[in-house]
Simulated assay, not measured.
Amino acid sequence: MVPLKSEHIPRATIKRLALYVQILETFSREGAEVVSSETLAKACNVNPSQIRKDLAYFGEFGVRGVGYYVKDLVSSIKQSLGINRPWRAALVGVGNLGKALLRHQDFRRRGFHIVGAFDCDPFKIGEEISGLEVICSRRLKDIVKEKDIEMGLITTPAERAQRACNYLTEAGVRGIINFAPARIEAPDHVHVEYVDFFHHLYAVAFNITLDRQSD
């Protein structure tokens, strides 16, 4: 991992770095070898100074008067974020959302391999989705150890999210992405991120409302 110039890196910076990787990979697929901070900033809807500030947490990048070498910058950011290697994940809650995520091809392409699917519904256990057999959640601890799983995705209904979190933390995962519309309690050493689609829907609805009021 690239040594950090500071341990206090804003969460917003981490999110922007993930966006930079996505945009830079698009540039690379289109054949670009070098990109200026201005071009990258425009594509990411930020200003060039913000990009330079974000990258400065991890070292010096780019060549004055030339720009950034796309493949080198992608590699450096991935190494900085710790995503320059595969990550193995378990998904708990094989409902409609869970099934959609299991079928989502971008997870594997971006280095996140969902290698276990779990549910407590006896009618779902044994079902096969995208090459994975749905396993009873009570077996999660054994499977996590067997498959060296480091993170979990929770896609259960809200009322079952905490139980899913308990299964995952007791199994030894170090990070959880919670898609369920509920807050969960996890040990301090377990990193938890929330994905709530309604937050984005509320934000869009609010901005549309503001636009209408100003018309």
Score class of each variant (00 low, 15 high):
residue 135 I to Q: 03
residue 27 F to L: 01
residue 108 R to K: 10
residue 128 E to V: 08
residue 117 A to C: 03
residue 119 D to H: 07
residue 150 E to S: 13
residue 93 G to Y: 04
residue 116 G to P: 11
residue 174 R to P: 00
residue 189 H to E: 14
residue 138 R to D: 15
residue 191 H to Q: 09
residue 186 A to V: 12
residue 143 I to M: 11
residue 73 L to I: 08
residue 4 L to H: 11
residue 122 P to I: 00
residue 35 V to D: 13
residue 44 C to V: 00
residue 145 K to G: 10
residue 76 S to F: 07
residue 160 R to A: 15
residue 111 G to V: 04
residue 29 R to L: 09
residue 20 Y to R: 10
residue 84 N to F: 07
residue 185 E to K: 10
residue 100 A to M: 03
residue 153 L to N: 09
residue 58 F to G: 06
residue 191 H to I: 14
residue 195 V to H: 14
residue 1 M to V: 14
residue 31 G to K: 02
residue 124 K to Y: 07
residue 10 P to H: 08
residue 104 H to Y: 14
residue 147 K to D: 02
residue 138 R to G: 04
residue 66 V to K: 11
residue 2 V to Q: 09
residue 40 L to H: 02
residue 169 T to E: 04
residue 25 E to G: 00
residue 209 T to D: 11
residue 184 I to N: 06
residue 73 L to G: 00
residue 59 G to D: 07
residue 158 A to S: 09
residue 94 V to W: 01
residue 23 I to Q: 01
residue 212 R to A: 01
residue 22 Q to R: 14
residue 168 L to Y: 08
residue 186 A to C: 08
residue 62 G to Y: 10
residue 120 C to V: 11
residue 133 E to R: 09
residue 28 S to W: 00
residue 151 M to Q: 03
residue 119 D to N: 12
residue 122 P to A: 01
residue 212 R to Q: 14
residue 48 P to K: 01
residue 146 E to V: 07
residue 19 L to W: 08
residue 154 I to E: 01
residue 151 M to I: 08
residue 166 N to E: 13
residue 181 P to A: 11
residue 190 V to K: 11
residue 122 P to F: 03
residue 68 Y to A: 06
residue 127 E to Y: 06
residue 115 V to T: 01
residue 40 L to C: 12
residue 202 Y to S: 14
residue 57 Y to N: 05
residue 31 G to S: 06
residue 114 I to T: 02
residue 193 E to H: 09
residue 47 N to S: 04
residue 112 F to C: 13
